[in-house]
């Protein structure tokens, strides 16, 4: 026959042991080695922060400037506005009936962030294309004029993997603005005209 006090003591001990002994990975510094990791080929070339605290802009409505040097623009009606992070100044998605989608973003950084060739090559890496040399960049990159600002337009297509990027780089007032459209090749090319119209609607504050 069990003695009651022994049973009670055993149960209390078990309960305390369960709670105290099984601690989750605690507050200790851990040191370990890992193999060198391959670079994320699919990581976006430009930051796309997860924060969604800023208000969503409405498609087709010129954006009110949050800051003095943010340009206004008019996005096509079928572009669905997405929440902005603290670095994205514009963000849209376009969906087609087959479930494909493309991502359109506007970002700004001070200076030239490593130069146009470095940025274009990051985008090329993103869609698994070999980097351009300076000569190739000079040959294939187009010059555009947006609101009297000279910029660069590139169309990058990976026909094998069916991916594409059309992007424009506009230097203005010491900053560089990046307008980028990324997604399945067929969809991106279908939106090329709309994207260029969107670029032409960009107006920097005077």
């Amino acid at each position: 026959m069990f003695k009651q006090k022994h049973i009670l003591a055993a149960l209390l001990s078990l309960a305390i042991a369960l709670i105290t002994a099984c601690k989750k990975e605690g507050d200790n510094i851990v040191v370990y080695t890992v193999p060198k990791e391959a670079k994320h080929a699919n990581a976006p070339a430009m930051p796309t922060p997860p924060s969604t605290t800023q208000p969503m802009p409405m498609a087709g409505v010129p954006v009110e400037s949050a800051h003095a040097d943010t340009p206004s623009w008019t996005a096509p009606q079928d572009w669905q506005a997405q929440p902005l992070g603290s670095l994205r100044k514009g963000s849209w998605k376009v969906f087609n009936q087959n479930g494909g989608e493309i991502d359109i973003s506007v970002l700004v950084f001070p200076g030239d962030v490593g130069g146009n060739l470095a940025n274009v090559n990051r985008w090329r890496e993103q869609i698994d294309l070999a980097p351009w040399s300076q000569n190739e960049f000079n040959t294939f990159a187009e010059e555009i004029l947006v609101d009297n600002v000279k910029g660069t337009l590139v169309t990058l297509e990976n026909r094998t993997d069916d991916k594409a990027i059309i992007a424009a780089i506009l230097p203005h007032a010491g900053n560089t603005w990046y307008f980028k459209m990324l997604g399945k090749r067929e969809l991106v090319l279908a939106q090329e005209y709309a994207f260029k119209e969107f670029l032409l609607s960009v107006s920097f504050p005077k």
């Binding site: 605690g26 507050d27 510094i29 040191v31 370990y32 890992v34 193999p35 060198k36 990791e37």
Partner: peptide, 24 residues
């Protein structure tokens, strides 16, 4: 060139201003 040595410090040790030391 083969591997990285990672020293992982939990945020509980840096939430308050202070110094963290470790043999590694």
């Amino acid at each position: 060139p083969e591997e990285d040595t990672v020293i992982s410090i939990p945020l509980s040790l840096i939430k308050e201003p202070g110094v963290v030391e470790h043999a590694a």
